[in-house]
Nucleic acid binder design. Structure first.
Length: 404
DNA sequence: CGAGATTCATGTGAAGTATACCTTTAGGCTTAA
DNA sequence: AAGCCTAAAGGTATACTTCACATGAATCTCGTA
């Protein structure tokens, strides 16, 4: 064992292929953004009125994950901030990612996070929401300014609460006397605006910009740029870049995915003590990404979720042996109760479990569809959508968390 | 045989409850003058 | 008298429960051919 570790440490220190791995990480902000010039120009054009201390239109950005939405906005944000400083104009742009569970998935928590960013503080609970609103307003309205609020992945947040929140936000301007706000919404879901209150829709969608997926060529270009900075010379084999690009292009042109692929393939190659990133590691990296994503989601779910998921997993194993028996809510609930007793956990009502199933569905770990079995009532028909090779690992996590 | 009525097993919405936490308020105690 | 601390009172968000009603196709009923 000792020897094995030694060699790992050794290669970590000496044989590193990377010059600057950070360049490939998602949080990295490049100085220039390629292939999004058009969108950036539009965003900048709309937001430029900030420099005259005028309120820009509300803005809505669409596009699949990894199409550069966040990046473009952030880019414009920093550029604008620079320029504003130069000109001595006071502007305020706040970015908030709504997807972070436990940080911002309710109206209250989003506001709290926002207030926190603005330098105020609110307790985690206990305050009436309208009080939080007035605190927020107070904070913004303290001086004459235009505040831009960027809500990333806003569709995720609204799925969990009502669209009343957005309505409140759009109406907020009338509550402000000195300051003004404008909103930027970012959504992965193209149909998002169609399903919300028309009043909000028209207000929020004053301007809309669509981010099309990158094509393979563009991805390749981006990867080339980054890999030059990230890797040492000659550390990337022929064809690696184009394969990453091709992989990601197949996944709706997701640049983030492409970069992750390249980075992880690099890490894997390095770990194996290779002198360069080799083609074969890309497939491995691809699998690893899928795996990590799922395991991560499973891991951070609360205990009751684990119980439900474990029940589903167990049932799906049984049903597979018996060839394609479907899983229904009732079965899940029965098994779930059994596990609760076994682990001495409080048994939740079927009502709640039904909701939990819906939530797990949202997380993409299972597939649940309401069907009617006619005389035999109505149910959710549930299928586990975790790849077979991962089920074991997932089960392991669940077993550990439940102490079975 | 076919159109309607029934039925089942949950889905689903609304309202209520428990818990954990927050602010406000009113005493009560300390302190400095 | 002013300042500070504490405990009680009053209030909220969140996760969950309770209650009650909604669903929708397989199955049953029954009139009709």
């Amino acid at each position: 064992m000792g020897v094995e570790l030694d060699s790992i440490f050794e290669s970590a220190v000496n044989n590193t292929l990377f010059k600057n791995k950070g360049v490939l990480q998602t949080k990295y902000m490049p100085e220039s953004v390629h292939h999004r010039e058009e969108q950036i120009k539009q965003i900048a054009g709309i937001l430029s009125s900030l420099l005259r201390s005028e309120r820009p239109s509300n803005l809505f950005l669409y596009g699949k994950t990894g199409t550069g939405k966040t990046l473009s906005v952030q880019y414009v944000k920093t550029e604008l901030e620079k320029k504003a400083e130069e000109l001595g104009v006071d502007i305020r742009i706040e970015y908030l990612n709504c997807k972070m569970r436990k940080i911002a998935d309710t109206e209250y928590r989003i506001l709290a996070a926002l207030i926190h960013q603005l330098g105020g503080s609110v307790p985690a609970t206990g305050l009436p929401t309208d009080k939080v609103y007035s605190k927020f307003i107070e904070l913004i309205d303290a001086k004459k300014q235009v505040v831009v609020l960027i809500f990333d992945e806003i569709d995720q947040a609204i799925a969990k609460m009502s669209d009343g929140f957005l309505y409140n936000l759009t109406r907020l301007n009338s509550e402000l006397s000195k300051a003004q706000i404008s909103l930027i919404g970012i959504s992965n879901d193209v149909t998002f605006l169609e399903n919300i209150d028309p009043r909000v829709r028209s207000s929020l969608g004053e301007e809309e910009i669509v981010f099309p997926p990158y094509n393979a060529l563009q991805l390749q270009d981006i990867l080339n740029q980054r890999s030059k900075m990230a890797f040492k010379e000659n550390a990337v084999n022929e064809g690696v870049i184009s394969k990453c690009a091709a992989f990601a292009a197949r996944e709706h042109g997701d640049a983030r995915r492409a970069l992750d692929l390249l980075r992880i393939a690099g890490e894997l190659s390095e770990r194996e003590g290779k002198k360069s990133v080799e083609l074969e590691y890309i497939d491995q990296a691809n699998r690893k990404i899928e795996k990590d994503k799922i395991l991560d989601v499973v891991e951070k779910g609360p205990k009751q979720f684990h119980l439900v998921l474990y029940s589903i997993s167990k049932l799906s194993r049984v049903s597979k042996e018996k060839k394609e028996l479907k899983i229904f809510t009732g079965d899940v609930y029965n098994l779930y109760q059994e596990f609760c007793r076994k682990t001495k956990t409080e048994i939740l009502t079927q009502r709640r479990v039904s909701d939990i199933i819906a939530e797990i569905d949202m997380l993409g770990l299972i597939n649940a569809q309401v069907i009617s079995k006619g005389r035999h009532g109505r149910t959710k028909e549930i299928t586990l959508s975790i790849p077979p090779n991962l089920i074991e690992k997932v089960d392991a996590i669940l077993v550990e968390s439940l102490g079975l």
